[in-house]
Computed example of a mutant assay.
Amino acid sequence: MMTLRAGLLGVGMMGRHHARVLRELDGVELVAIADPGGDPHGVAGELSILPDIDALIAEGVDIAVVAVPTRYHEDAALKLASAGVHTLVEKPIADTVEAGERMVAAFDAAGLVGAVGHIERFNPALQELRRRLEAGELGSVYQIQTRRQGPFPSRIADVGVSKDLASHDIDLTAWVAQSDYVNVFAQTTFKSGREYEDMIAVTGRLASGVIVNHLVNWLSPMKERVTVVTGEKGAFVADTSTGDLTFHSNGTVPLEWESMKVFRGVSEGDVIRYAFPKREPLRVEHEAFRDAVLGEPSDVVTMAQGLRTLAVVEAALESARAGSSVAVDAP
């Protein structure tokens, strides 16, 4: 395997983890780090902290990771594309669909790998869930519901909870179901005194007919990361904070307690929590990006897919402003 020279733009809360994984990844050598804000977490080690993306490119990198605030994604990505550097940009792809479209076009025109860091796809619980759905273990899928709640993160200043967190749920839902969103209806709240929303509730439908629901907020003292897929044979529950996957099967044993029949349309069956390997999602994501750059089979999240996710988020925000359902158009 050839060794790829890697550069990292941004060593904040997320960038520091990218630095660690890049240093540990086979076939990759972290050779340059840039951050105009310095090195707050002390991750540079023997490397000098470069001032900007131009200095990073001048180091002659083959691949780059962009982990700066969302509003800076487009500028960095377009410069990297122009320099011929394969790039992984943290989610969301950009702050607007138009910016994302320019990024997709630039990497396509240059024949480069452009990827987006939708890390939840690489969570072991969701990867196992996807595998079991593909194997037909649930039968027909009826509904996908997600809950992503927790306290406000002070590090996020340039986007609301929809682009920062709901983008995770929208991406993973379309990926798990292998079907795009066709419409959404959403409601938002603004409770923390910021210009951006801190809670969003989304309902919608996929092209496959699956109904989806997402509850996402920065207002809860309880941290929750749950995906529930309900279908013909029962329900899968994936907890991405622990990497656990549980299956609740429909019951086959008839109820003899008459008063309980009133409350249960489907009787309870067996409950199984699966055991499977649980690798760090960020490491698996980086391996997928590396493999894509090397031309090997890969499940990397492409910029085109990241753009589609952003378009759904924008449609949800438009719905919340208009108070009506919004059709999701392909970017």
Rank of each mutant, 00 (worst) to 15 (best):
R130C: 03
R131L: 05
R132V: 10
L133V: 14
E134I: 14
A135M: 08
E137T: 09
E137L: 13
S140Q: 09
V141L: 11
Y142D: 13
Y142M: 06
Q143E: 12
Q143A: 12
I144S: 05
I144M: 04
I144Y: 02
I144K: 01
I144H: 02
Q145A: 07
Q145N: 04
T146Q: 03
T146D: 03
Q149S: 12
G150K: 13
G150L: 09
F152W: 15
P153K: 07
S154C: 01
S154Q: 13
R155L: 05
I156Q: 10
D158R: 05
D158G: 03
V159C: 13
V159Q: 14
G160V: 14
G160N: 07
G160I: 06
V161T: 11
V161A: 11
V161W: 08
S162N: 07
S162H: 08
D164Q: 12
L165G: 03
A166V: 07
A166H: 02
A166Y: 04
S167K: 03
H168P: 02
I170Y: 07
I170F: 05
L172F: 05
L172E: 05
T173Q: 00
A174I: 01
W175L: 13
W175K: 08
V176Y: 00
A177L: 08
D180I: 03
D180Q: 10
N183V: 04
N183K: 11
V184H: 09
V184K: 06
A186L: 04
A186H: 04
Q187N: 08
F190M: 08
F190A: 07
F190W: 12
K191I: 08
K191D: 15
K191E: 15
S192D: 12
R194E: 11
Y196S: 11
Y196K: 08
D198F: 10
M199P: 03
M199N: 14
M199K: 14
A201Q: 11
A201P: 00
A201M: 11
V202N: 03
V202W: 05
T203P: 03
G204E: 10
R205A: 09
R205G: 10
R205Q: 15
L206I: 05
L206P: 01
S208I: 01
S208H: 01
V210W: 06
I211V: 12
I211Q: 06
V212H: 07
V212M: 10
N213Q: 12
H214I: 04
L215K: 06
L215P: 06
V216E: 04
V216D: 10
V216F: 01
W218K: 08
W218R: 04
L219R: 15
S220Y: 00
P221R: 13
P221D: 14
M222D: 15
E224S: 11
V226F: 01
T227I: 08
T227F: 06
V228Q: 08
V228N: 07
V228F: 02
V229A: 00
G231S: 09
G231K: 10
G231F: 03
G234F: 06
G234V: 05
G234D: 06
F236A: 00
F236N: 01
V237R: 00
D239H: 10
D239C: 08
T240F: 10
T242F: 07
T242V: 07
D244T: 11
L245K: 00
L245Y: 00
T246G: 04
H248T: 01
H248Q: 08
S249L: 09
N250H: 14
T252I: 10
V253W: 03
P254E: 07
P254S: 04
L255Q: 11
E258C: 06
E258I: 10
S259R: 12
M260K: 06
V262Y: 13
R264Y: 13
G265I: 09
V266S: 09
